[in-house]
Design a protein around this nucleic acid. Structure first.
Lengths: 340, 340
DNA sequence: CTGAAAGCGCTTACAG
DNA sequence: CTGAAAGCGCTTACAG
């Protein structure tokens, strides 16, 4: 059984395809009577517009691309959920792709989306992405891009982010408030804007409270994994340096660190207090439960989609698009790992 | 800058569009020289086929739909990852949609995919789906469907699953092997095939080892959440009934149960042993770490895609499609929560 | 080996 | 208010 076409409706009513097409979309220059008649016939014949033909004719796909570093990831999967739900409400389809934190793969994904002729792109950059030529290429053919979470500061596009510097500052301040005087930091990749800003926030808090900043208390995590957390906790124990608090770039690493520290008989929070970042679910159920920074993910996805959606619409009407940077709030969640 | 078309290549080489089209796809009836010439020109002009036109002409989209109950979910997000990676390798695009464990939403998602004209559908059913008319509708227009994990036994299509009955049996047997004699079960929804089969596995193990089966030791979890785990653990404590072991339908609920039991001063595994299902990451880091059943997710996604892919190809060549049911292995992971 | 023509199913500018 | 015609950019059956 093949799909009903406009042609078939036209034939059945003995009117033209043109009129059917216009009637179905309630064009004002079609008579009410015809509109009703056509819509009834369409209903009866179970007519569904052929997407392929509509796409070709209108040169838009009502589809957007969403590129994230990882799918199996509490934060990013929540973003995906927010994007998909919002897209659905507005008649858009989402193609989800992952870059696996690799800038080369990211380039391929962008190229794929360009070839697929999506209407716009939502992206959280891979941590090692420092050049944006692939994005500029998309922009050169008028493809709107909106970045979220992992952004490139110099890319001229709208952005949906949190204030990582401030959040890093507050996480560190929280440790200070709990009595820590020698605070280490497990930072993320050197090229990730998130991790750069959180690091700056950490430094700023130390400065402001006249605590010594010592580069050797900053541990560098190339990767956001449990194992890396354990590894760096081991390193820290080898040069403990009197450390009594750690601000960790992300919850998963903090959970690894806690596990390792416990294995070495360190008491948390008595010996070392720890605060993570992201408020992943698992942080609330481990022992001790992990203090962290709550960061919007689902909402970020929704807002990112809506930002892109509004640019898409302005674009269609040839209106000027003003890029905006939306900053979402974060919040310190105090749990057992930083009990005063 | 608009995209290069076949027309433009043809014009630039002073040959026909037909020949360009055939040359680009290396048709044997085009001379080698022409093929080279055309490909060089295409490269030079950065030609990319217009997907919309190709779709309309070939009546296929090289796109499949993937419907899952939840995206923010360790198991399903891993499946998504497997599907997307495999699709990418084979030139397919994936539209991911979620049913939110609601059969009405699931119907809408399927309808959406039909309208979008995907080439095939991969689905894990919502737990409350007991009628399959929406799927039959897709099949009626020759849309291949492959089910995975959450299936409907009576739907005539290929399936990729685990042996839930056997896995449930082995999980229960593991508790018995650890010395448990009064084993409760936290089961999932009554209409979910997974949960039905795991329940039967539980019963079978009790029978086989001559342990009393008591319906009042079966707790019904309508929803796969942490809170429901806590709630049912509370219920169990009210009618403990001598229970010294619990087989829980899924890790998330088991983690909730452990948390609640600990809060009530129950020692795990000394007082009650617990085994979950799914081997979620968090199960390995909570205290005590949770014994569980390892279940393939990423691999299941890959295999599900490949099964659909091969049906798609057979379909194109008008070959008969034989439905198959692929059963993937599971494995007991013994951790602290069931130490003997 | 090459190409003219038809057609996939729509939308829209234009004529009446 | 209605409709004939062109065209979006391809692919393919057919002719030469």
């Amino acid at each position: 059984m093949s799909r009903t076409t406009l042609q078939q409706i036209a034939l059945s009513l003995d009117i033209s395809v043109t009129t059917v097409s216009k009637a179905l979309r309630s064009y004002p220059d079609v008579s009410k009577k015809t509109i009703e008649k056509v819509k009834a016939a369409a209903e009866l014949l179970n007519y569904k517009p052929n997407t392929f033909a509509v796409n070709l004719r209108t040169q838009e796909s009502k589809t957007i691309g969403l590129v994230i570093p990882e799918i199996v990831h509490q934060f990013f999967s929540s973003v995906v959920k927010g994007v998909i739900e919002e897209a659905e409400k507005n008649g858009y389809t989402v193609i989800v792709l992952q870059s696996s934190q690799n800038t080369e793969i990211e380039k391929k994904r962008i190229e794929f989306l360009i070839n697929k002729q999506v209407d716009g792109i939502l992206i959280a950059l891979a941590d090692d992405t420092v050049e944006y030529y692939h994005l500029f290429e998309a922009q050169a053919i008028d493809l709107p891009i909106v970045m979220f979470d992992k952004i490139g500061k110099t890319v001229p596009c709208s952005k949906v982010i949190i204030d990582d510097l401030r959040a890093g500052y507050e996480a560190t301040k929280h440790l200070i408030d709990c009595g820590c005087t020698k605070i280490a930091h497990f930072r993320g990749p050197l090229t990730s804007q998130n991790s750069i800003d959180r690091y700056h926030g950490y430094k700023k808090a130390l400065e402001e409270y006249n605590l010594e900043f010592d580069e050797s208390n900053v541990y560098h995590c190339k990767e956001m994994s449990f194992e890396i957390g354990k590894e760096n906790a081991r390193k820290l124990l080898n040069h403990r340096n009197g450390v009594d608090g750690i601000f960790v770039n992300t919850d998963m690493i903090a959970v690894g660190a806690i596990t390792e520290l416990k294995e070495h008989g360190i008491n948390i929070p008595e010996d070392i207090r720890i605060i993570g970042f992201g408020n992943w679910f698992l942080s609330s159920v481990i022992t001790p439960s992990l203090s962290t920074v709550e960061q919007p993910s689902y909402t970020m996805g929704k807002i990112a989609f809506n930002t892109l959606f509004s640019e898409l619409n302005k674009h269609k009407e040839n209106q000027h698009v003003e890029h905006e940077t939306i900053i979402l709030p974060t919040e310190i969640i105090a749990r057992e790992s930083t009990l005063a």
